[in-house]
């Protein structure tokens, strides 16, 4: 199943390469990866979706935490979290069908962000399923371009006041991990 890993890293050249290289050589597949500045300047936040069992996801996390440039790694699938994707869709929209295209967009709470003579660009955020459904709904009208981000994810609830750099050592026992 997909696991959501959030890594906070130094914002330095080459860090993305270090992270992806490690995940690749430990033989895990990255479904999606989204990178941007984190709340503290000089740090980046990487949200990674990795296809693995739970033990595998924790193993990737513990390998990632060994990288000098990685400050912490959260495995969000361990707790309730918000996951969002963003998509831009260019849809053919001549005058004859424009109204219907906009209606479909509306139904998915997509925003119109560009209008041209014979097409419109819609912006939509939400779950992966919602975006896939919108794309399918628009396809009969002529889906000219589709650009999607990877997942952005954040845990729900109160932020722990002190985020430990490392899990307590006992948590590395797989028995303890599964609790």
């Amino acid at each position: 199943m997909p696991h959501f890993l959030v890594a906070t890293t130094d914002d330095e050249p080459g860090v993305l390469n270090r992270v992806t290289s490690l995940v690749r050589r430990r033989a895990f597949n990255i479904h999606s990866l989204t990178v941007g500045p984190a709340e503290t300047s000089g740090t980046s936040r990487m949200t990674m979706v990795v296809e693995s069992d739970e033990a595998g996801a924790l193993r990737v996390a513990s390998h990632l935490e060994k990288l000098l440039n990685v400050l912490k790694v959260e495995v969000l699938s361990e707790r309730p979290s918000v996951v969002r994707y963003l998509a831009l869709l260019r849809v053919s929209a001549p005058v004859a069908t424009r109204g219907q295209v906009l209606l479909v967009g509306n139904a998915f709470r997509a925003q119109v962000v560009d209008v041209a003579e014979d097409s419109v660009v819609l912006e939509c955020s939400g779950s992966a399923e919602k975006i896939a459904a919108l794309a399918e709904a628009l396809r009969p009208y002529g889906l000219l371009e589709l650009s999607r981000t990877g997942a952005l994810a954040m845990a729900r609830g109160t932020l722990p006041s002190v985020v430990p750099l490392r899990r307590a050592a006992t948590e590395f026992s797989p028995l303890a991990m599964s609790v």
Binding site: F172, S173, P174
Partner: peptide, 18 residues
């Protein structure tokens, strides 16, 4: 000393990263 080794190949009852 390497936490990534604990449980990597063999499941363990007690893993101590130390």
């Amino acid at each position: 000393i390497d936490p990534a080794e604990l449980g990597k190949n063999v499941p363990v009852e007690l893993g101590v990263a130390a």
